[in-house]
């Protein structure tokens, strides 16, 4: 093997190690029986899990996260898909402008988005709570849905829909029996990405929730109180949920880079 090939392999291996090792360390310390997070690991235990699962706030914040991610996932997928449908039938230039506008929120750092929403809602005296969190999540998840569904619609063969219409199908019937089955994987994938983003968001949620907790803000509260092995488990759960959702998304949309 040439030296340059060897160097390339070492580089790629180092990159993988850098990306994956924190995840491995996290999983390892979910089961370490020491209260501090350090080597050497002396024994394994599931006691931290039992302790976490007996806390009411944990279940409450998990429930809130489920409400937010579920509502955001359903609403943003519906709204984003509708917009993407319309964009696919627009003149390319009009579609380009509309798309650029609607995807603009992604370019704003989450801190700035969170603070603008906090100022705006308190200026209008809108009460903060899960409803404002849901609104905030809709605005930064819908660009992803629009981009993903629009990418699929631009390769969509509208001739099949037109023939269904020519054969007498109503617009709704043509949609449910022709269009929807064809693009269903893309829509499921887009919903999964939106839910992963919503579930994992800390910054925007932190500024728009007022009182109460979702899983990330619950984790933040634990972090502020100092080292506690339960933190590892909440972090691990949060990470596994988002990774599962995004892997399903890549699988159903057959994403390959």
């Amino acid at each position: 093997m040439k030296t340059s090939d060897l160097l390339w392999r070492i580089f790629a291996a180092a990159c993988c190690l850098f990306m994956v090792s924190p995840l491995v360390i996290l999983i390892l310390f979910c089961f370490s029986d020491k209260a501090v997070i350090s080597f050497p690991i002396e024994g394994l235990t599931t006691a931290w899990w039992a302790e976490l699962f007996s806390r009411r706030e944990f279940w409450k914040s998990l429930g809130n996260s489920a409400i937010v991610a579920g509502t955001v996932g359903a609403a943003t997928t519906l709204f984003g898909t509708m917009a993407a449908f319309s964009l696919a039938r627009m003149h390319p230039r009009a579609a380009g402008v509309t798309m650029a506008l609607l995807t603009l929120p992604v370019m704003l750092p989450p801190l700035v988005l969170g603070l603008t929403l906090l100022s705006f809602f308190s200026g209008l005296e809108i009460r903060l709570g899960l409803q404002t969190v849901i609104l905030a999540h809709l605005v930064f998840t819908q660009p992803f849905v629009i981009l993903v569904v629009h990418a699929r619609m631009s390769r969509f063969d509208f001739a099949v829909v037109n023939s269904a219409r020519d054969l007498g199908a109503s617009p709704l019937r043509a949609f449910t029996s022709v269009t929807l089955p064809l693009i269903r994987p893309t829509i499921i994938g887009a919903a999964m990405i939106a839910m992963a983003l919503s579930l994992d968001d800390f910054i925007v949620t932190f500024f728009t929730i007022g009182g109460g907790n979702t899983l990330p803000t619950f984790l933040w509260g634990m972090l502020r109180k100092g080292a506690n092995p339960q933190i590892n488990i909440v972090g691990f759960l949060l990470m596994s949920l988002t990774i599962c959702a995004s892997l399903i998304a890549f699988r159903v949309t057959r994403y390959r880079g």
Binding site: M19, L219, L223, I231, G235
Partner: peptide, 16 residues
Amino acid sequence: VALLTLFGGYLTKIYV
């Protein structure tokens, strides 16, 4: 490997 670590775990990663 890159896809696996793409979405999620913002707070978790900083903490780790």
